[in-house]
């Protein structure tokens, strides 16, 4: 039976998170210090088969980085996550690399709905493993709004048993799919700065697109997890550097 729990975390005294679910969701301030970000570890998203619903507000001018502590862990057989987030003006939420590893017969369903207010910024990065098992269902809807305007509506779906995925244009035979979303009305870099960090090694593909001048999306298909992680780390470190340059004067 599902219950409502308000709580578990207060970020910088003002950022609130409401959580719906029985299993404990743990959020703790990380030891690592940063000139701009306040970093939190998030834990417990992968410990229940009950639906998890999180409503999260990043208050004005906060710079929050969330690190998923459960990466590298195979997902529960059934996992349902509803993540609603409102990022107020001048604030930034950076959800660092989540790794989704479907287990046998797993059914993973997540809906990430984010609203960015005025000049708020949002960064999300994720890797999905497609070759660990053959029988899984993964559905992830990324829905990003800038108040009235929908910036992204991306219902990614992979079904391990789906023959179609092997065809040209789909995920083909690549075992890893990764994405980075960076939403900002005025990204603090040139697209070539990012483009030059993407390699086109054999059996590794990467592409980047502008989202109507409101951000960028980078996508990878890869057979090399080490190279993929290196490249994502490089891009995220570059974002971190540029964000720090700008925001260090505001904190």
């Amino acid at each position: 039976m599902e219950s409502n729990k308000q709580l578990q975390a207060r970020f910088q005294k003002v950022n609130l998170l409401d959580y719906k679910g029985d299993q404990p969701l743990k959020i703790a301030k990380a030891d690592q210090s940063h000139r701009v970000f306040t970093t939190y570890n998030i834990d417990g998203l992968n410990q229940t088969e009950d639906p998890i619903s999180i409503d999260f507000t990043v208050k004005k001018a906060s710079n929050i980085k969330l690190l998923d502590k459960e990466k590298d862990q195979p997902a529960q057989h059934k996992r349902s996550l509803q993540f609603n987030c409102n990022i107020e003006e001048e604030a930034l939420l950076f959800f660092d690399k989540r790794e989704i590893i479907p287990s046998d017969n797993s059914n993973i369903n997540q809906h990430i709905k984010v609203n960015v207010t005025e000049d708020a910024e949002f960064i999300w990065s994720e890797i999905v493993h497609l070759d660990e098992v053959s029988d899984y269902h993964y559905y992830s809807l990324m829905e990003i709004w800038a108040e009235e305007q929908c910036l992204a509506y991306d219902p990614v779906q992979f079904d391990g048993s789906e023959e179609m995925l092997a065809h040209h244009g789909m995920t083909e035979s690549y075992p890893y799919v990764a994405s980075i979303w960076y939403i900002s009305p005025d990204p603090p870099f040139d697209e070539w700065d990012v483009q030059q960090r993407l390699s086109q090694a054999k059996n590794h593909r990467a592409g980047m697109t502008d989202i109507d001048g409101k951000g960028i999306l980078i996508r990878w298909l890869s057979t090399d997890l080490t190279l993929l992680k290196q490249e994502m780390d490089d891009v995220l470190a570059f974002f971190d550097e540029k964000i720090t340059e700008l925001r260090k004067w505001r904190v």
Binding site: V156, Q157, T209
Partner: peptide, 18 residues
């Protein structure tokens, strides 16, 4: 029922710009 599984096609279209 809308869905996106065409990641390869998207990456190709992204690369096309360059």
């Amino acid at each position: 029922d809308m869905q996106n599984s065409a990641i390869g096609l998207e990456i190709s279209a992204m690369q096309h710009k360059y």
